[in-house]
Design a protein around this nucleic acid. Sequence first.
DNA 1: TAAATAGGTTTACATTATAAACCATTTTAT
DNA 2: ATAAAATGGTTTATAATGTAAACCTATTTA
Lengths: 93, 93
Amino acid sequence: MFKPLDPLLHSQLRLAVMSLLISVEEAEFTFLKEKTESTAGNLSVQLDKLEKAGYIGIEKSFKGKRPLTTCKITQVGVKAFEAYVENLRNYIE
Amino acid sequence: MFKPLDPLLHSQLRLAVMSLLISVEEAEFTFLKEKTESTAGNLSVQLDKLEKAGYIGIEKSFKGKRPLTTCKITQVGVKAFEAYVENLRNYIE
DNA sequence: TAAATAGGTTTACATTATAAACCATTTTAT
DNA sequence: ATAAAATGGTTTATAATGTAAACCTATTTA
């Protein structure tokens, strides 16, 4: 009935990030920060967790002279997100 | 876009409890415990929080000689649950 | 009458989330 | 030239949260 909800995804900010990343090729740190209206610190920490879980990939480069962090959802991440949503439905429908 | 998710409802166990209570006249502690597969301690704590928020009402009585705790969702609780679900949709759809 | 069960509550602990503080560099203003 | 502000983040300290273990009272069973 109530399947466990992946704790990594059952977090407002991480869920918002995954929600953004699932519908886009890739996204920059600042884009995610604006869309989620989070602080940089919080976002940084949560992106790390998602990366360590293998849900997203993070690439660091430069845009001009400025550092640039680019995020991309992985196949593992897509699967996890879909499973989470599926499980969640049992709670809210 | 991403409206804040009521922290009181964005918790696996509390959400499961609310999900059960919303579709039933009232429910006993032991019923909720079985359906949610939670420990009694955890359930007790979470029910307290829901009650303090005014999302549920808790009545204590006796069934025969045994203590009986009965829970019932309030109108405030119903509203909060519906708002939560509505907000959540932006994250998962 | 001792032990097990029922129906919980309290509390201690571990995990988590969050923002404040920080860092390196770059741009703008003076 | 240089001080001040802005950019693009990361680290870390603290608060808040979730959870189960330990506990409690009463009842039933052996």
